[in-house]
Design a protein around this nucleic acid. Structure first.
Lengths: 337, 337
DNA sequence: CTGTTAGCGCATTCAG
DNA sequence: CTGAATGCGCTAACAG
C-alpha cells in the first residue's frame, strides 16, 4: 500500500494543474492532445487510481448502480451479474446487489430506502420487478435513471430483451416437425412477462403447424419445479394425453420429466419435453433437455451499458434486442405410434 | 429527494454539536444516555442517513468488503451472497463481487488491483481461492483483514467451516446401513480442500462399516458434471462394479445418474447414488438425490460477521463451525440381490 | 462527557 | 485551452 498517490502528485509529475488531470481522467473536452498524453503517462508511472469516495463526494455522484432482483433462479442471476460486472469495470462503476421481496409495496419501500441510504446513480431491474407498476411509477417521480432486463412493456423503457415469443414459436415448430400434434403447454408465473410471451409463441407455433389450439392442453404453472410436477400430473392424467409438453421454463420441464419417469413413461419415447432458459441443470438431467438459451451475461452487460449511457446523458439509452439460441437435446424426439 | 439532510442539521435539531451526533451514530463511548436518545430522535425525525462517501473519505475506511470467488456453482454463490448481504446490511457495509480467474498469479494480481482501486476494508474468500498459497501470503504482507469460507487450513484463519469429513462419513455409513459393500467414490477437484475431507470421510465410513478400502473404486473427478460422467463410466465398466457411488458433489452425482440410466440401470435399484451440496438440481433430478445440505447463506452471514469483527478490532474474529444436514432422498436404496 | 478546528481527495465553480 | 480557490459531508485530533 505504501503511500497513496493523489491527483496532486500526478499533476506535479505531469507539470500541470490538478484540474487538468481531472479533465483527462473524466474525458472532458478542452485538453490539448499532447498534454493529455503527458498526463496519461504520469498516471501510468505513478499507478494512480482515483479515490472513489472522494470523486463521489466532490462530484455528488456515487458511481454505484443497484441491481434489483427477486428472481429465485441462481443461474439466471449469476449470468446477469457477470455481464453487469464486466460493463461496470469498464466504466469504473460499482454494482450493489439488492434482493427484494415479492409484494409490490415492499418493493417500493425497499427501493426508496436503498436510494436514500446508498444513493445509486441508477437502477437495473430484472424480471419480474421490471413490471411492478408501483415501482415504475415511483421511479418516474424520483427521476432516477433505470434500465430493465426483459420488461413486459418495452416502449419508453431502456434496457435489453429477447424475442421470447419467437423462441417459443420455434420450440413448438420443432415439436410439430417431429410429428407431434397434441402438444401441451405449462404456463409460467402470471406476474412475469415471459409467461405471456411464451404462451403466445406456443399459440403461434400451433397455428403455423395447422394444429387447433386446445385449452385443455394448457395448464397454469408458476415457474417452480413443484408447479411443474402438478401441471404435468394434470396433463398426463388427461384421457387423451399430449405426446409432447412445452414447459415455460426448465424447472417446470424437470417436473414434467420427473412425473413421466415415475409413471414409467419414456422420455422422449412416450413424451417429448421442452423447457426454456438453458439452466445448467437442463444439460445434467436425464434426458438432457431441449430448451432455449438466453445470453444472460450479454443481457446484463448490455442493460448496464444502456443504463450508464442514460446516467451520463439523461434520456439517452435504448432498448436492445439480443438473439436467442435453440438447444436441441435428447428430451425431444419423433412421435411414436 | 428534496433536500439532503446532513449531520449538521441533525446536530442543530438535537441541540448538540456535529461530533456528538457522529459519536452516537458510530456507537462510540462517551455520550450520556439522554443526549444519545435526543440525537436518535432527531435522526429519526429527519430521516437522516449518513453519506457513505463522506464517511469513507473522512474516516479513511471504505465500508466495503469484497467477495472473491472463482467457484462456478451459481447456487452455492447465491447462497453465500445472501448471507453476506444480510450481515452487511446490519452494519451498513457494502459488498462488492469479484469474480477471479483460476491461475494463482492472476488471482494475486487481480486482488492487488482490486485493493488499489476499491480499497475494501476486508476480503471474503470462498473455496478454492481460500487455499491459494500465493494469495494468502500476499494478504498477510498487505495486512488486510480477511475471512474464509471452508478453507483447507483452518488454524490461524477466521471464517466459517463445516465438518465435511463427518458428513461424508455419515453418507457412507448410510449406504453401508442399506447393505452396500462395494461403494465407489468420485473424488472432487484436487485444488479444493473439500475433496480431501470428503475422501477421508469416505475412508472412515468404510472402516467403521468394516469394509476394506479398495483403490479401484476411487476415481478422480473435478466437480464438473462431465467429470462425473467420465468417472461413472470407469466405475460401471469395472468387472465387479459398485452397487453404490458416493460422488463428492451433486454435479458429479448427476453425471453418475446419467450414465446409469443410459445403461438401463435402475437408480437406486441397481445403483445407489449420493452427492454433496444439496444444489437445487439435486431435488429436481430423477431420482432425487441423497446428499448433504450446506447452510450456504448461514455460512456467508457468519463469515461476514467474523470479518467485520476483525475489521473493527484487529486480530479478533474466529473460525466458526456450522452444522450440516443429511438429505436422504430417492437415489439411495437397499442393496438388491 | 462534549465541542472546535482542520482536512480527507477530488470536482466545481470562475478566472485567466 | 488551463489554473486557483472553494467546499462536498463527514470524522480525527485535539481542546475544554
Amino acid at each position: 500500500m505504501a503511500v497513496r498517490v493523489r491527483i496532486e502528485d500526478v499533476a506535479e509529475v505531469a507539470g500541470v494543474s490538478m484540474k487538468t488531470v481531472s479533465r483527462v481522467l473524466n474525458r472532458e473536452p478542452n485538453v490539448r492532445e499532447d498534454t493529455r498524453l503527458r498526463v496519461m503517462k504520469a498516471v501510468d508511472e505513478l499507478k494512480y487510481t482515483p479515490h472513489l469516495s472522494a470523486r463521489s463526494l466532490a462530484g455528488s455522484k456515487s458511481y454505484l448502480i443497484a441491481l434489483l432482483y427477486n428472481n429465485p433462479s441462481a443461474s439466471y442471476l449469476m449470468g446477469v451479474i457477470e455481464g453487469v460486472l464486466e460493463a461496470c469495470e469498464a466504466e469504473n462503476y460499482h454494482m450493489m446487489l439488492c434482493p427484494l421481496e415479492d409484494e409490490d409495496e415492499r418493493i417500493v419501500a425497499a427501493t426508496e430506502d436503498l436510494i436514500a441510504r446508498s444513493r445509486p446513480d441508477g437502477l437495473l431491474l430484472t424480471p419480474p420487478i421490471t413490471d411492478s407498476p408501483a415501482l415504475l411509477q415511483r421511479l418516474a417521480e424520483l427521476e432516477i435513471p433505470f434500465a430493465s432486463v426483459s420488461p413486459k412493456v418495452q416502449s419508453e423503457v431502456i434496457g435489453v430483451a429477447m424475442d421470447e415469443t419467437r423462441a417459443a414459436f420455434d420450440i413448438v415448430t420443432h415439436l410439430a416437425s417431429l410429428g407431434h400434434r397434441r402438444i401441451g403447454h405449462i404456463v409460467g408465473h402470471p406476474a412475469h412477462g415471459a409467461s405471456g410471451w411464451r404462451l403466445n409463441g406456443y399459440k403461434q407455433g400451433l397455428e403455423r403447424a395447422g394444429i387447433k389450439f386446445d385449452p385443455a392442453l394448457v395448464v397454469q404453472g408458476e415457474f417452480s419445479f413443484d408447479s411443474g410436477v402438478l401441471a404435468a400430473t394434470a396433463l398426463l392424467d388427461l384421457k387423451q394425453r399430449p405426446s409432447a409438453v412445452f414447459a415455460a421454463n426448465d424447472d417446470m420441464a424437470a417436473g414434467v420429466i420427473r412425473v413421466a419417469l415415475e409413471r414409467n413413461l419414456r422420455v422422449p419415447g412416450d413424451l417429448s419435453v421442452c423447457g426454456f432458459d438453458d439452466t445448467p441443470m437442463s444439460s445434467q438431467i436425464f434426458p438432457a433437455l431441449t430448451t432455449v438459451h438466453q445470453p444472460t451475461d450479454e443481457m446484463g452487460r448490455i442493460a448496464t451499458m444502456e443504463l450508464l449511457a442514460a446516467i451520463r446523458t439523461p434520456h439517452s439509452g435504448q432498448m436492445v434486442r439480443v438473439p436467442y439460441t435453440l438447444r436441441l437435446r435428447r428430451s425431444t424426439g419423433p412421435l411414436q405410434a
